[in-house]
Simulated assay, not measured.
Amino acid sequence: MSVAIEDFKIRAGAFHGPALLLSSGSRQFQTTIQSLGLPTDPEEIVDVSAYLKGMTSLTRLADNNDFFVWAGYSQKVEDLGFFGRAIISAETLWDALQIARSALLYYQSDSELVIRVYNGRCHIWYFNPFDARQAVHDVQYTMSLLANVICLSRFQNDPDILITYPNGSPSHFPNSAPIGQVRNSSQGYISFDDRLLKSRMSGRDGLQAEILSRYLADKSLLVEKKPNLKDLVGGLVRASFGVAPWSLVNTSQALQIHERMLQLRLKSEGTSFREIVQTERHQTSKRLLRAGKSIEETAEALGFDHRQSFSEAFSGWEGMSPSIFIKMQEPQSAN
């Protein structure tokens, strides 16, 4: 692995599904989370010691060594935060697995999903930086979560799912689960009929999947601590440039915060959704123009309908037209 185990980080959303299983309502969920000293925001980052301690605490509270198998399979994937919402919003299972693989570093640093398709089967291996003793609950949870994701697709044929993990047993899954075989193994592995990869996901939302995937691909998010709401909204707005217009409604859905509450929380941070959009457009426009993009290309990338409307907006931000701004960059380029 590329980093020391002490540098391992994971988003707090890993605790939320299991904690919800132990709670009968939102208030009890908050109480459970707080009593165990676990973060309440799924996007918050915890280190390896806090992660292992949290998993052990939840296991003891559940009084079940295989608790994380049940948790992973029955969890609402969207409770994992942006990572989970991007996965379930994908168009097909193939898209969902690619999001899971590429965005895993955002959710759980220094872990890896390897996906291969051959001989009519899709094969997935999961690797983490833990030793065998530490890895048990993490591998159980991750493989059951993957099985959950696969079962969220709308399959027409028998998926013939094979899954292996520590202490793996068919008794861990309900009889109604479309899982053919479960085996005990120290390795996290799952395979299924590759025809399932074309199946559509039950909660597909192409726009949300694209924006969240682009947001999760931002490498700076891997090392930052929990951002404030203004930064989260700004990141989503930036990710939308060049894709489609991104509204307050879209943001509310992605963050799972009611629109009015979102507006109030942004106001408490001294800003608004409109101000964030204008700031992100302003900063991105300067970066694009300095990079050599034309005024037309920049206007289109930022979602302006016409060059003129972009020029007017840019003049208001910068106190000069974009054409003058470009000319002012030329001496710097020559130097």
Rank of each mutant, 00 (worst) to 15 (best):
E6Y: 06
A19L: 03
L21W: 07
S23D: 06
G25N: 15
T32M: 12
T32D: 05
Q34T: 13
L36V: 07
L36H: 14
P42Y: 07
P42G: 12
E43Q: 14
E44L: 01
D47S: 12
D47M: 07
L52N: 07
G54C: 05
L61E: 05
A62I: 04
D63W: 04
N65W: 01
F67M: 06
Q75P: 05
G81V: 02
F82I: 02
G84Q: 02
R85H: 03
S89D: 04
S89R: 03
A90G: 04
E91C: 05
L93I: 07
D95C: 04
D95W: 02
R101Y: 09
L105R: 08
L113S: 00
Y118H: 14
G120T: 11
D131R: 13
A147R: 01
V149S: 02
D158R: 12
P166V: 08
P170N: 08
S171L: 14
P174K: 12
R183K: 14
S185E: 10
Q187C: 06
Q187D: 13
G188Q: 07
Y189W: 10
L196P: 00
K198N: 12
Q208E: 08
E210T: 14
E210R: 11
L212G: 02
S213K: 01
Y215D: 03
A217C: 06
K226I: 10
L229E: 05
K230H: 08
V233S: 10
G235Y: 04
A239Y: 06
S240W: 02
F241N: 05
V243M: 01
V243P: 00
S252K: 01
H258I: 03
M261R: 13
R265A: 04
S285Q: 03
K293Y: 13
I295Y: 04
E297G: 14
A299L: 08
L302V: 08
F304Q: 04
Q308P: 00
S309M: 08
W317Y: 15
I324F: 11
F325W: 12
I326E: 09
